[in-house]
Design a protein around this nucleic acid. Structure first.
Length: 234
DNA sequence: TCGCTGCGCCAGCTCACTAA
DNA sequence: TTAGTGAGCTGGCGCAGCGA
């Protein structure tokens, strides 16, 4: 029988879940979330929100990943789009590697200090360990990708093109918005943890509003919210 | 023991002010 | 008009102390 992770917390799991969702999903600061909860008659300090996000964010993200696992197994072997983006971390430049599938689902996020062959190789192996080998890999012209793909033995599956990888480039935008709201990340471990959590939340709540009819979008939004609320129960 | 709070620190950003 | 500077603000982070 697994222990209830909320057993010591004085605040109800529903409120904790709401606060975590607000902070991770939307570009809000800890103090913004504190104010919004206060508006609903919930009095907590911003530090409690930080504690909850740190403790329960990865837990919720893990549950989302487990629930989407069967869906991901069906589709993720089609095509991967890989891209890396630099992120300032306490003044130092780090690189956030991300793998996106052909439907815009964020498969993996990985933070490294360098942008070389070994970093690309680690990222590849980590992603393939979780999802298996893709049919095709789309990358930009960054050389470490070619070297890593060659070492893995998938060179015939790599597609390189200036505009082919727009899907991956565009997928950075939500994280960039979030980063701007946070002003910066301070620690590499926090960046890695937040990037993974943010990706899971984004996958769950990304309902492709722009390509669905309003009615379809509303149904999918209700379903996502219902599933989200069941995470605490399940 | 552990959640929660309050406080202070640090780094980055914005904007008003000043000098050239 | 433009570039440089510094004060003030914002938000993340660390930590000590309180209370259940």
């Amino acid at each position: 029988m697994p222990r209830n992770p909320f057993r010591y917390f004085k605040t109800s799991p529903e409120i904790i879940q709401l606060a975590v969702m607000m902070y991770v999903r939307f570009p809000l600061s800890l103090r913004n979330v504190e104010d919004l909860l206060h508006e609903r008659g919930i009095d907590v300090c911003h530090e409690s929100v930080r504690l909850w996000v740190d403790r329960f964010g990865p837990m919720f993200a893990g549950k989302i990943r487990i629930r989407r696992a069967s869906y991901l197994r069906q589709i993720t072997q089609w095509q991967w789009h890989l891209d890396e983006v630099f992120v300032k971390n306490n003044g130092e430049t780090h690189y956030l590697w991300r793998a996106i599938d052909h439907e815009g689902e964020v498969l993996e996020s990985y933070v490294t200090k360098t942008r070389d062959k070994s970093a690309a190789l680690r990222f590849f192996k980590k992603t393939m360990k979780r999802y298996g080998a893709p049919r095709t890999v789309v990358t930009d012209r960054l050389r470490p990708y070619g070297a890593a793909v060659k070492e893995i033995g998938n060179i015939d599956r790599q597609e390189v093109g200036r505009h082919l990888n727009n899907r991956a480039e565009k997928s950075h935008l939500p994280l960039r918005r979030r980063e701007r709201a946070m002003l910066r990340f301070r620690r590499m471990s926090n960046l890695q943890k937040f990037a993974s959590t943010h990706a899971s939340f984004h996958n769950h709540f990304n309902l492709e509003r722009h390509i669905n009819h309003r009615q379809t979008f509303k149904l999918r939004r209700d379903a996502a919210l219902l599933e989200w609320r069941q995470l605490v129960v399940g």
